[in-house]
Write a protein that binds this DNA or RNA. Structure first.
Lengths: 160, 160
DNA sequence: TTGATTGCAAAACATTTGCATAACA
DNA sequence: TGTTATGCAAATGTTTTGCAATCAA
């Protein structure tokens, strides 16, 4: 089977654009543009990772020690961003959620259970099958997520 | 595209067999067979649903009012069963996990965000693609899960 | 009898919320 | 100036843990 449809993705959107969109979004909803909100968006953008609210909060405290940003504000802003589809979250059971910028195209996740690294990919064939399945059942698909768990190449080599 | 590979699954394993396996498992690990552990396994088996620990606890209290089973024991037993691959869990973010018997064959999930109903399915084409993707990356797949979120047929009709 | 298991209550986390103060528009 | 947002601390909800009592082997 030739691999013609699987892509391992890179981010493409620029920060200036993202910030612009965010400001527009806030204005449209009569919300205010605050330094905390900007810092949260910016930190999320510059960390190419999936972050827990707590990890994000720590990062912000390290990067902007003079700014007192509370964990409550991080949670509130993440909810706001998620409701607006600016970020999406991945669930990991009782250990909570991890957030990532959702401005990228839709993608699924490969998760290494050893080092925690997350690789993103999109496979068109899988996307097509998902639509076929929901169509058949009369199910109105709103979203979907797929995770593949295992050991990444690096960790396999480390273990030898 | 003809649908030749998608199956909506039913359970096939028998309880007697499951119980037998569970007892063997306990013995092998020097663990004891208790009435609480049996009741948890049995309730999980007889409820064809994905249950939260709390829901499972409630069900048990209703079905066995004379037996005092604590929520702590439910959590402890679910961990034990999950570690032993007797049950698997589905994560729903901060709302915690739902557990189901994992003795059934592997399957994915269709989740209605309106009524919470979960439908299981397996699609061979998707399974094949998953293997193709991990093979290409040298990633050793241990497990995978896929969830499709949306509105089920019933809820769509209810909303009209 | 001995060691594992249980129930209970307290502890540990993650997340949310009320409220007075501070900051945007 | 008038809201909205923030930080703080308290509240909530879920899961885990310590410990004395109980139970299985």
């Amino acid at each position: 089977m030739p691999n013609v449809t699987t892509n391992f993705k890179d981010r493409t959107i620029e920060y200036a654009q993202l910030l612009e969109d965010f400001k527009t979004l806030l204005k449209k909803n009569n919300l205010k543009f605050t330094i905390q909100r900007e810092v949260i968006l910016e930190t999320l953008y510059n960390s190419n990772e999936h972050l827990t609210p707590e990890a994000l909060h720590h990062l912000i405290q390290k990067r902007y020690p003079e700014l007192k940003t509370s964990i409550a504000t991080v949670y509130r802003t993440l909810s706001l961003l998620e409701d607006s589809n600016v970020v999406t979250s991945l669930s990991f059971g009782a250990q909570g959620k991890k957030y990532e910028l959702g401005a990228k195209e839709h993608h699924d996740h490969l998760i290494c259970t050893e080092c925690g690294e997350i690789t993103e990919f999109v496979d068109e064939e899988i996307e097509k099958r998902q639509h076929a399945i929901t169509d058949e059942l009369g199910f109105k698909m709103l979203d979907h997520s797929m995770q593949i768990y295992g050991i990444c190449k690096k960790c396999q080599e480390k273990n030898k």
